Amino acid sequence: MTTEITEPITQANEPDITLFEEQAPVVEALAALVRMFGHLPKPYITLNRFSTALGLQLDSPSAFEQWRTALQVAPDAVDSRSSENDAWLCADGVFRGVAVRLTGFGLVLPGERPEDAAVVA
């Protein structure tokens, strides 16, 4: 007796596999960002296979603010987050139809001296 599999086997909790071509708008938006804002501080860039969003992570609040302004993200869209040892800024925007997540590290925690604040390099 032989068994023929006619449908792909997937884990029940595994997300749908996306096609690489679905990232084309993200890559095109990234290329446009480089052309238009190449003079801004260099971000750490993230792309995720489960999302068509672009992440830009900056190592200081100042760099975050420059990008926020360039992308015309409203100041009231900025949120601050913290964990036990870190604090950061985040805001969501859209550039050329692509969701952009800005994150700015290097915030000083209450009780921490500015010169002791860790900055992500």
Rank of each mutant, 00 (worst) to 15 (best):
A99E: 12
N48Y: 10
S60L: 04
N48M: 04
V34Y: 10
A77M: 14
L33C: 03
G97L: 02
R35C: 12
M36W: 12
A91V: 01
V100N: 09
W88S: 03
T69L: 13
F50T: 08
R49A: 10
V98L: 07
A29S: 09
G55Q: 04
S82P: 10
R49D: 12
V98M: 09
S62C: 14
R68F: 03
L33N: 03
P43I: 09
N85L: 12
H39K: 09
Q72A: 15
P43Q: 09
D92V: 05
G97A: 13
N48T: 07
T46P: 07
L89F: 14
V34L: 06
T69A: 15
L33D: 01
S62L: 14
V94E: 10
R96S: 12
F64I: 08
G55T: 04
T46S: 14
L58G: 05
R101A: 11
V98T: 07
A53I: 07
R101C: 11
A77D: 13
F37W: 11
F95P: 14
A87D: 12
T69K: 07
A87V: 00
T52R: 14
Y44M: 11
G38T: 00
E84R: 03
W88Q: 00
E84K: 06
F37T: 05
Y44F: 15
A53P: 06
A99C: 09
S60R: 02
L89M: 04
A70W: 07
L33P: 01
S62A: 15
D76V: 12
W88Y: 10
D59S: 14
L30E: 15
R49G: 09
F64Y: 03
Q72P: 06
G93L: 01
S83G: 10
L89N: 01
F50M: 05
R49L: 06
L54S: 01
V100C: 11
D86K: 04
Y44A: 15
A63S: 01
F37E: 02
T69V: 13
V94D: 06
D86N: 10
D79V: 15
L33V: 01
S62N: 15
L58C: 05
T46R: 15
D79Y: 10
S82I: 07
V94R: 12
R49T: 08
A77Y: 04
S51A: 07
S62I: 13
A91S: 02
P75Q: 02
L58S: 02
A91H: 03
P41S: 00
E65R: 10
V78G: 05
A32M: 06
A74E: 15
T52W: 06
M36N: 12
A29V: 04
D79R: 13
T46Q: 08
L47W: 13
F64E: 00
L40M: 05
V98S: 13
P43R: 01
A53D: 08
V98N: 09
D59C: 13
A77E: 11
R101E: 13
V94Q: 13
A87L: 08
A63C: 00
R68N: 10
D76Y: 14
S62P: 09
R68W: 01
T52I: 04
Y44R: 15
D79K: 14
D92S: 12
A70S: 01
L47S: 09
D76A: 15
F37Q: 03
